[in-house]
């Protein structure tokens, strides 16, 4: 199975940050991004590749540990792919599809 990318080999995604994570991404909640359909090794781009890509290209804040830890999103962040928990979709291994919506939300504890 190969990643669904467009003619230019790029995948267009909508990425959304909330629950405080938007502060790490120029205080902007919604981003339209276009990233390569294949990862560094020529494999189809996965959710793990997206997380690395966001960290290196979209995140201006230097506190990377606020977003990633041990090579994946840090504990306390839920990732939803098209409104469903990414664990239901394969987690890190999920292959990106054109127009996917990725929703990153940091959990809250206040009451």
């Amino acid at each position: 199975m190969s990643t669904q990318s467009n003619e230019a080999g790029m995948v267009l995604l909508e990425v959304e940050f909330t629950g405080g994570l938007e502060l790490l991404f120029s205080n902007q909640r919604k981003h339209k991004i276009s990233l390569p359909g294949s990862d560094e090794k020529g494999q189809p781009a996965t959710a793990a590749f997206l997380v690395r890509y966001l960290c290196e290209n979209l995140m201006k804040d230097t506190r990377k540990e606020m977003f990633v830890m041990d090579g994946t999103v840090r504990p306390g962040i839920l990732v939803l792919i098209n409104d469903a928990d990414w664990e239901l979709e394969g987690g890190d291994l999920y292959e990106l599809k054109e127009n996917d919506n990725f929703f990153f939300i940091s959990t809250l504890h206040g009451g």
Binding site: M66, R74, P75, G76, L78, T107, G111
Partner: peptide, 15 residues
């Protein structure tokens, strides 16, 4: 099940 590992305190803000 949903949050197997806790968030580190430096990532958590209070009210």
């Amino acid at each position: 099940c949903i949050f197997p590992k806790p968030m580190r305190p430096e990532n958590s803000r209070s009210c």
